[in-house]
């Protein structure tokens, strides 16, 4: 069994992994040469990074963004992966987030009604900043927030 640090590795598909990609390496050997049976070994590895990306497996609480903006409703799918916002709703998922210069948010979006503004935004707007500064509009007839992703 190797005991020293592993500085590189090759995946079963032949990809060479440098030290940058390896925080942990695990060596496993298994055989049963005295048996005709073949055993499968399954290794499950869970990755965790720092707090910014830590998974909250209990889900994020959804609350209304308050007057004068939120008048609508919201509904969460059974598996917690989807949030539907309707009828002039502004809904917040309570999640502390640090946005760095490298941060990306990805998601799927589907609108089933016409509206003025469909958007995703980051909260904690202080009085000196407009919420539009932290808002990406992705649909709707009214122009509000950043427009780079409003297709």
């Amino acid at each position: 069994m190797p005991v020293g640090p592993i500085f590189s590795a090759v995946t079963p598909k032949g990809m060479h992994l440098s030290q940058d990609f390896l925080d942990t390496a695990i060596y496993i050997k298994g055989d049963r040469q005295d048996s005709a049976k073949i055993y499968d070994i399954q290794l499950e590895i869970e990755y965790f990074t720092d707090d910014l990306f830590l998974i909250n497996d209990t889900g994020y609480e959804i609350v209304g963004a308050g007057a004068p903006r939120d008048f609508g409703t919201s509904d969460v799918s059974e598996d917690g992966s989807s949030l539907t916002v309707a009828d002039n709703g502004w809904k917040m998922a309570m999640r502390d987030t640090t946005i760095t210069s490298e941060t990306v948010i990805s998601f799927d979006f589907e609108a089933t009604e016409e509206a003025e503004i469909y958007a995703i935004s980051f909260g904690s707007w202080d009085s000196s900043d407009s919420p539009q500064t932290y808002t990406f509009q992705i649909g709707g007839s009214k122009i509000w927030g950043k427009q780079a992703f409003n297709t």
């Binding site: 609508g72 002039n88 998922a93 987030t97 640090t98 990306v104 948010i105 009604e113 503004i117 995703i120």
Partner: peptide, 26 residues
Amino acid sequence: EFDSIVFIADDDADGVSEATFSNINL
């Protein structure tokens, strides 16, 4: 630093809107 992510389906004119945000990764 932010304390929430906000999902907006704004429609002040007639109050009818509906959109689903899913499979969100940050």
